[in-house]
Design a binder for these strands. Sequence first.
DNA 1: GCTTGAAGCTACAGCGGCTGTAGATCGTAT
DNA 2: ATACGATCTACAGCCGCTGTAGCTTCAAGC
Lengths: 141, 141
Amino acid sequence: MLAIGTLAKRTGTKVQTIRYYEQIGLMPEPGRTDGGQRRYGDAELDRLAFIRHARQLGFSLEAIRELLDLSDMPDRSCAQVDAIAQKQLREVEARLVRLEALRIELQRMIGACNADRVADCRILEVLRDHEECLADHAATG
Amino acid sequence: MLAIGTLAKRTGTKVQTIRYYEQIGLMPEPGRTDGGQRRYGDAELDRLAFIRHARQLGFSLEAIRELLDLSDMPDRSCAQVDAIAQKQLREVEARLVRLEALRIELQRMIGACNADRVADCRILEVLRDHEECLADHAATG
DNA sequence: GCTTGAAGCTACAGCGGCTGTAGATCGTAT
DNA sequence: ATACGATCTACAGCCGCTGTAGCTTCAAGC
């Protein structure tokens, strides 16, 4: 039986984060000692490792919730799992496109400035006047 | 003199966002009508456009605050402006690297799965077992 | 058995950057 | 004069944690 701190170390999670996951129902309420401290078994360790790994891959907690639910239904079709992963991939790809546009714009902006004084700074000028931009860099990505 | 809604439309900002910027001191407190409604001039329009454009390029509100402060000091060296932009560029580049690693991992994961049933789903397996990953995709990017 | 210090507990506030709501008031066109 | 959209304030909520304060419990050493 593992204390919360041990679980935290083993999965690279903060103790508060584990309690947060419990609070939002992503982790189950574990057993407790007589004194009221949480004690975890291997199932919880695995579940938390799954969650953390999915988080590292950028899945939202909602998506992870779905994935966990699905993985409790081994006989079901795996299409839904696939769909969630595909969606995540598409989101990542979209963010890549936007970020790349940002990178280019920032580079151009920085490259254009060889002024000394703020008054002549091309960076500020570009920021002031949107027309000077090539791409329409929409969101942050 | 522009009402807040007009300012919002002209800059592609939500009304609440403008009020939020005022609240955190990024936008100045504007004049008011007798009835208490905000009225804006061209200076505020320009300032808000600057803010929104910088946001689109991924600058944080804190960075934007610095940029705005600097642009009020036209005789100063433009080096600090450059530094802020460089930092932003470096952050964007770092995020690109991480996102690209994510993309590859997701693609690999999805490509590996040709199962029908959840029980055999490679996607879930990979999520369960970090060892099956190539890269160490740290943060979300 | 007793002491100590680390680790755990609850409850709540705060981060960034907005967004949405409720319920009242204002401004303007007809 | 009226109607209706726009604006007002104040506050809660979003995501995914993270940090704090002020307690209690656990486990190791004596």
